[in-house]
Design a protein around this nucleic acid. Structure first.
Lengths: 221, 221, 221, 221
DNA sequence: AATGAATGAGCGTTCATTCAT
DNA sequence: CATGAATGAACGCTCATTCAT
């Protein structure tokens, strides 16, 4: 009985703490996204989070530490979702399409998260050594892996550079999303998914004469 | 004599002024590239430029104005060079290749300029309404135009989206250069030129079966 | 049974409380001595005392109150010891010697206590109106009293100023101990006891011609 | 002509700067003396000096740096005065008397300086490695030297410990001045000069029976 | 009795910018 | 034209203290 009470309290407490953290993180996300890191003030974040400035420092060590903590949850969720979907999809091309789709929709649905990543964190060297960056790095690794699998399966050309493909995908997404953010988010991001993936896929698939028109070499094998 | 002396002085002065400006800009470029905008101080720039802090304000209105003025010269030169070369090149694909080559080599040769663009200016909304940004915008327009010409010439697929292609090219370059800058510039950027352009070109050129394998459809037309 | 248990508990409790206080005081003494008053934090004291910060405020009203309480026990013990020894000693000079000896050895054996007194409390005006200061004041009164008795007994010159003598003794001890603390406690404090007291005693004892060589004047009286 | 103008300006400027520094130092001295280091604020010092807070940092690097600079001028003057007088005085005893007199009167006439030294700086370890402390150290060295000369001249006992004598003199002065400061400066410090020096001198001069009373013992030898 | 959690209040320091000379 | 000197305005962070539980 005592145990259950304690464990309940424990849960309640840690839940409360997590809720508080979440509350601060959401406020910070909004303020950082709107003002940028330097122009954002702890005072404003605290106000928005309905908490005292000092309390923020109970949960995060510094203003920058707070910034670095922001993307962890959303990025984790994004990459979990991605992993979940990828398991159900056959074919490297389709998997890439899914990834691009999920990235775009994640950014579209979380523009503050997108702004933090694209406009603030991406250029901060200290962020490179952070848990948040680790999450993102792991999530991005997928792409190169899928490309490699596509090459192995003959879906993509043998001389395809998986890291270049990844750079093209991520770079294009970043560029498009950044422009979208900077211009006040007028466009429909999702319209670009298909053209982008189609272009990429066509760019890296084996030459037609090798595959479609008799596919001599493959037959030969 | 006095006149000529004066006019000489006038020339000398305006030259001197330009030289002074250039001196400040180079110092600012170095400092901003190294420290970022916020962490760079006017004091440090002034010191490096061997000029007083107050004097900087004789030539530039604000710290941000100084920042915004930095890329103008280098960007102008880059786009002039690009224009110059493009006139000598036939074929949209070859022209895109040239552009990518020139961009990469410009960034490689001017890493401070690259850092200012990639890590600082790209995310500054106020920069959008700036002469510097105008120069860059004009320079980038080329790409979409060339793609359009390529489509018109049958070099690229008819349903190619020129703006997406441009986004892919610019986005990939930015992503690669940013990574190169953030990781201490270890890689050889130029190695990526060919794979990148090859992939893009293959991604947007008309389908093989339409062109290589008897081009039935086109003939039918 | 219950009663006895309760009273036992009562005893245990008050003992426990005293133990707790003592625990906090020792932690505070160490931290204050090491860091000084301002640089010491309640958090650090609490950590060292293995108690929560809030609990400290169950036993002491403020950080300064805690500071003021530190020397009471040690000072009381010192002055009790001193009183105890003085009863067994005849002659003002010997008594002064004993006092100086006991002071020095107390500081040597309790360098944290010494640091608190010499480097922190001695300069705090609010400490003047404190129980801790009262204890010290009482303990120091001895010296002047002994000097007065020495004068009355003809051991010391009639025109000796007891308060100056006290100031010389205390001042010298303070100066020496402070230097000892500030320089990392390298010297052997005790070596100074004899030279100090000898010099003082010779400085205040009646002139030789009055005492040793026929003591004319005294006889004349 | 130009030269003289320039040098005049140079003088004017450096004079102005010195005046400004002096102005800040006087304000800081007063505020630090009244409130102590921690409770003093730059704001208050700036206000009293009729200067902006930021300007203080044009002349001093930190709050503590400002504190450390305060005693330099006064201490230098004190020790120069001391040196000046000592040259005109014969006899170690008289010289010690002069030193004690000059110390006391310096503290009496500059109670803020005295408070800074006695209540703040004396206990700051970082001050030990400071120009201000160097000045003081040099000034205090005198005392031991004079005692040594007194010993050599037969004025003082051969077994006199010059460092103990110095500690007694400085310690007593410090103790007395500190008490004077802490109690609101009611007493006349100067009354203590003669009794103090007389006691010290008698405490360290060769024994009377050897010198005054026909020196029987010595003769006996 | 004990403490986890929350915060009010405070301050040193930085720096872009101005202006008299 | 050049600049030395001055400053207004801002802010992250700390910590002693409180209080509900």
């Amino acid at each position: 009985m005592q145990n259950s009470k304690n464990s309940k309290e424990g849960m309640a407490n840690s839940k409360k703490i997590e809720a508080r953290k979440e509350q601060i993180l959401r406020a910070a996300e909004k303020v950082f996204a709107q003002k940028g890191f330097q122009d954002a003030t702890i005072a404003e974040i605290a106000k928005l989070a309905k908490i005292s400035e000092a309390s923020i420092y109970e949960y995060f060590t510094t203003k920058e530490g707070l910034l670095f903590a922001i993307p962890i949850a959303t990025a984790s969720k994004l990459f979990e979702t991605t992993d979940f979907h990828l398991k159900m999809i056959r074919g490297a091309a389709n998997q890439l399409r899914a990834i691009i789709y999920l990235f775009f929709s994640s950014y579209r649905d979380n523009p503050d998260f997108a702004a933090i990543i694209m406009l603030i964190l991406k250029h901060n060297k200290r962020f490179l050594e952070t848990e948040g960056h680790l999450v993102i790095r792991r999530g991005i690794k997928n792409i190169a892996t899928i490309v490699e699998q596509g090459i192995a399966a003959g879906e993509f050309k043998e001389d395809t550079n998986p890291y270049l493909v990844r750079a093209m995908i991520i770079g294009t997404i970043e560029h498009v999303v950044t422009a979208w953010l900077m211009t006040g988010k007028p466009d429909d991001l999702m319209e670009l998914v298909d053209p982008l993936i189609d272009t990429i896929i066509q760019g890296i698939k084996p030459r037609e004469e090798e595959t479609s028109c008799w596919s001599l070499r493959r037959v030969a094998k």
